[in-house]
Design a protein around this nucleic acid. Structure first.
Lengths: 209, 209
DNA sequence: TTACAAATGTGATAAACCCTCATATTATGT
DNA sequence: ACATAATATGAGGGTTTATCACATTTGTAA
């Protein structure tokens, strides 16, 4: 099925599904080139002509696999999100009480923050360059998915609390976490660190009930 | 001084300062037209040609007062921010204890949320369409200014706490408030309301120390 | 191997848009 | 009324995205 291939490649916005191996390599070349260009000058500055040249592919080929310019960026964003979600899933696995959750969450925030600081592409894509609605939708879906992971743990650890309220709280905590990261990487390092610490305090209190 | 005129008109990005009254009216016509167009189809869809036609002005005239397309949007954003800041300043005036602060803040959040829900232009501009860095800078400066207002009250009410930490906390609370609004208007109304409530709980706890 | 069909690759070019600038019009001061 | 400064105009230059008719490569069966 084409969909499984799509899942493997994480190409929700693709136009033509690559069935031959040569075209899969091609798609990877395009994405690698996009990554490099974004790291160098930001996603705004990425031109389709540059991308074609860097990937050693014609412009027409770009549009074989991506319906438009922003789809390339969205695909990268989703890859990074998937990577982050794995991180969260691992971090929350095996948590069995509230103090454990606090510790795990605190470490997750640090890990995430480190990823934001280290990955120029992630920095760029999530630092507010959300020109199109589809990219915002991806952001929202990401918060939702991460929030669901957290909510699951919370409802398990606090069976007496209202699950609906916990779900909203978890969703918000995750979304504001992303917002905090974006803020933190927009200011100087010292202030960014302090803001991340302040966020952690706020979020951890939320787990106490 | 041209700067005073600039201050009155809130046109930080203007190219030529309007000295004749006719051109001031013109600028207002342009901004009103921009507002209408954005309310109708979003800022992404606002074309300079449409704007010129709607404002009954030539394209060249647009560039007499705005250096580029995004400057028009930024000017509107700054006007809305100024309006919001006045709101906050009023709301926090006369607060004399922590319970009072909690009540005032809670009401401010409701007011702000109401503004976001009611104003299509504000919705659009702040709902994530931050394609260019300058608009993000405006967002950041806004959070900072609002945070400073809150920090002032907090340091007054809690003289024993570390002022630096309070400042970071206030900045973060204000910034995450904006993030919450953006999130709330992106989901359905019931969920949005619940998320705003969750944010209020989180923020209010932060004031307790 | 050869031939044929399906899949994939190419780049000139259409279409859309932002912004400039030479020129025309209007306002202000004498 | 005249001169000069301020403002208004819109055709066109320049840039970028995306298309599509045609060329090339791959897979397959005789």
């Amino acid at each position: 099925m084409g969909n499984e291939i799509a899942g493997e490649l994480q190409m929700p916005a693709a136009r033509r599904w690559p069935t031959q191996s040569r075209s899969r390599e091609r798609v990877e070349r395009i994405l690698a080139a996009a990554s490099a260009l974004i790291a160098e000058a930001g996603s705004d500055a990425m031109r389709m002509s540059d991308l074609a040249e860097r990937a050693e592919v014609s412009i027409g080929s770009l549009y074989q696999y991506f319906p438009d310019r922003s789809a390339v960026i969205r695909t990268l964003a989703e890859r990074y999100n998937a990577q982050g979600r794995e991180c969260i899933e691992e971090g929350l696995a095996g948590v069995s009480d509230i103090p454990g959750l606090k510790k795990a969450f605190s470490e997750l925030v640090d890990t995430y923050y480190g990823m934001f600081l280290a990955e120029p592409v992630m920095r760029d894509i999530w630092s507010g360059t959300q020109a199109d609605k589809l990219l915002r939708d991806i952001d929202l879906a990401d918060s939702r998915a991460n929030g669901a992971l957290l909510a699951e743990v919370l409802t398990r650890l606090r069976p007496d609390a209202d699950p609906g309220e916990l779900a909203h709280s978890a969703f918000l905590v995750m979304h504001l976490g992303e917002a905090t990261m974006r803020l933190a990487i927009s200011v100087d390092r010292a202030e960014g660190d302090a803001l991340v610490e302040a966020y952690k305090r706020m979020a951890l209190r939320e787990f106490e009930g």
